[in-house]
Design a binder for these strands. Structure first.
Lengths: 205, 205
DNA sequence: CATCTAAACGGACTGCGGTCCGCTTATTAT
DNA sequence: ATAATAAGCGGACCGCAGTCCGTTTAGATG
């Protein structure tokens, strides 16, 4: 499953770039280690680019050269779990992966996504704060397509692409986190509501 | 209709505060005028607090004393049209206002909201970038309640409050704007998709 | 009018994300 | 080994939102 990578190992750089220099690789590792350390200590919000640079013992410019932006850094930190999530719903066992009917896969997808956000919430949030467009991020596009395909599989008529976007919007991390952390809603209830929503949307096509 | 104000005339200040001083009032007018001017010239993104202060001939501290934050300023600029929108769906004529069946009111609500975002998009976006929680803003809470009430009116069973939130998330301004501006989707198509969505959700309760 | 006080004021200051550009260094070719 | 070159590097610098605090002033009181 790891031979299909939707998240490049060094995001931001074009695919066919020459191998990176030794010192660059070393600094990247240093930075990632320092970042995880800082996040463990101060939380994702407490990670600033200056502090990261200092903590890793490199210049600030280096941080931005590596990751492009704060969001890019967060994305890199997430890439492993993100890729795992992706491969699970694309190639994994049913009901999340192929083999189950579309509706069941939709339901499972929502539940998984909710769990994912519960686990990596603040990281995801920080990654989303990217300068431009949370809807154009490669991962977001992929879910969108995924939902659209499942809708079509269920014979959904009018405008599957738009409806897929609407459903995806429903799983917005900021919203989910606010529901759980501010309003004290149990994640299970979120999953149940998602199940209800997609069931109604798909019903009798 | 204007005797019910959900948006205080001077947001951020407690209700029972003494009348503001003359100079303060004058500065507030100056600031609002300058802000509208700057937005007309440079767009909402081009409005920075420093430029606004300079343009209005006041100190920067004054700007923040008046509006609390950039988002607060944007909210103030929007308050008139926002209040108008609110009063229309709460007290106005059907199908948006009371008198029509819940489903029709829901459909009309989405359509109106889409138009609203198309008209004031960048303002809304800038206002939403408030420091904490776009879901706790008074206006957002109000729509949420509104949708919930209409769902209940249609006999929606399981979890009307959560479902209302999901439906509201579907109308997220950033998403709508991205669809129209990046993907070139016609607003009518958005409205049609919304109609389809709420119809399916409400169908046979 | 003089006095007093709370509100309003202004702008220097902080911390942030992000950019720029001259210097350094790993790597490759000769 | 040496020279050439492109990649990497660092940190000064920018514009931004938001804060702080000493100073000014509107307006009420006697």
């Amino acid at each position: 499953m790891s031979d299909v990578s939707f998240i490049p190992p060094r995001p931001g750089l074009p695919a066919g770039t020459a191998a990176e220099r030794r010192d660059a690789a070393r600094n990247r590792e240093r930075l990632l280690a320092a970042a995880r350390e800082l996040i463990a200590d101060c939380g994702a919000e407490g990670l600033t680019m200056d502090r990261l640079a200092e903590h890793a013992g490199v210049g600030k410019g280096t941080v931005f050269r590596r990751f492009g932006s704060r969001a890019g850094l967060m994305l890199t930190l997430l890439s492993e779990s993100e890729a795992d999530f992706q491969s699970r719903f694309m190639f994994g066992p049913p009901p999340l992966g192929p083999g189950a009917p579309g509706l069941e896969r939709l339901i499972a997808f929502g539940a998984e996504r909710i769990s994912y956000v519960m686990e990596f919430g603040d990281l995801v949030l920080a990654a989303e704060h990217a300068s431009r467009g949370r809807f154009e991020a490669p991962a977001a596009v992929l879910w969108h397509r995924h939902i659209e395909i499942l809708l079509r599989e269920e014979g959904f008529g009018p405008d599957p692409w738009l409806m897929a976007g609407s459903l995806a919007a429903t799983l917005d991390p900021e919203r989910l986190l606010s529901l759980v952390k501010v309003h004290g809603i149990a994640p299970d209830r979120l999953a149940a509501s998602w199940r209800d929503l997609v069931t109604r949307v798909v019903r009798e096509a």
